[in-house]
Nucleic acid binder design. Structure first.
Lengths: 193, 193
DNA sequence: GTCTATATGGAGATAGAC
DNA sequence: GTCTATCTCCATATAGAC
């Protein structure tokens, strides 16, 4: 039985989709009221800091999702190899196989970056670091691990740009498959089958 | 002896830098007048269509630069291998080794994409197609050529996102070196030295 | 071509009733 | 917690003198 009365946390997913679709500057308060179904009164009740606080809340939720679903498993799983393949499917799911853009990547290229630069930087640094850690524990030499982790994050972000630009989600799917084979190969290939 | 009176084409490079720095929505007309040193009168004299026409002019100039400096050489050079290495250095120079973002990539992730979707799509499609053509002519099988061309454009765009997000231009430099070795390897490696 | 002044709309944000 | 009404400001764009 869903509550009629909204809670702050109920609104954040809608806000995320809105910012993804319109960008930070492009998402006006009227767009937001329309798409969320909430009036400005409610919006400012939940987010007294206005649009900036809304975006910060969205970024916070994204951070948290990746931290628990992706970064922590990569850093602490007993089996780093399976954490890596699991990362690939989580990421494919999260970005809807290339049909959804990365809000943090979009913010990174925008001028709003300056308002959220710490969060933007930490997100990518965490991802790269956590994946490198998993690769190392899976037997990859440190130098290779760092390079391959960076290559992976670069490929994911680039694929999202291209998939959106060309309106070809398959670019993302192909990229993710390619990178996954490379990650598997670097952690000992098929030998453990 | 520089002319005092501005010409339309003189303004476009400044506009490009402004859109790169502030984004389309983030670049207000007051920002633009301030940074270009031109009043609104002059701006609307050159670009009667306003900001949208300014952005279109910038995109047109970028298109043209890439067409003549990168795409055409890739498609028609007698020596496709050297056209490929030359692409890498042109691209490194153009993006200032990762300190400059790709405006078209940024537009692709933004909602302004909808206003310029044809140009955005064509730019990336052209790049991927031209590079694939050069790879094929350099002896790469068609399937591999397409995949590697796509991987290259993905890597460049992703590296620009990450370099900007992390404030680490080296990410771009490392990526470009890695991709260049891969391109060279795919066209026969060092054997022709 | 370039400027200043101005029109007009929509932006983000607030107030206060319910 | 949600609404409507309202405020202020700055956005884009225009007009017309020089």
């Amino acid at each position: 039985m869903p509550k009629i009365v909204a809670e702050r946390s109920d609104v954040i997913p809608s806000l995320a989709e809105i910012f993804r679709e319109y960008g930070f500057d492009g998402a006006s308060l009227s767009t937001i009221t329309e798409k969320t179904g909430l009036g400005k009164g409610s919006l400012y009740h939940f987010f007294p800091g206005g649009k900036e606080e809304m975006a910060a809340a969205v970024l916070g939720e994204i951070d948290e999702w990746f931290a628990t679903q992706v970064f922590e498993p990569l850093r602490s799983a007993d089996d780093p190899r399976s954490a890596i393949t699991s990362m690939c499917s989580s990421v494919a799911g999260y970005f809807r196989s290339g049909r959804r853009v990365c809000l943090i990547g979009a913010f990174a290229l925008d001028n709003v970056r300056n308002r959220f630069s710490d969060r933007v930087r930490d997100y990518f640094a965490e991802w790269r670091g956590a994946l490198a850690s998993a690769l190392e524990r899976a037997g990859c030499p440190e130098r290779d691990a760092l390079a391959l982790a960076e290559e992976t994050v670069v490929a994911v972000q680039g694929a999202l740009v291209l998939a959106r630009a060309l309106d070809e989600p398959e670019v993302f799917e192909r990229t993710l498959e390619r990178i996954q084979s490379r990650l598997i190969a670097a952690t000992g290939g098929d030998e453990q089958r």
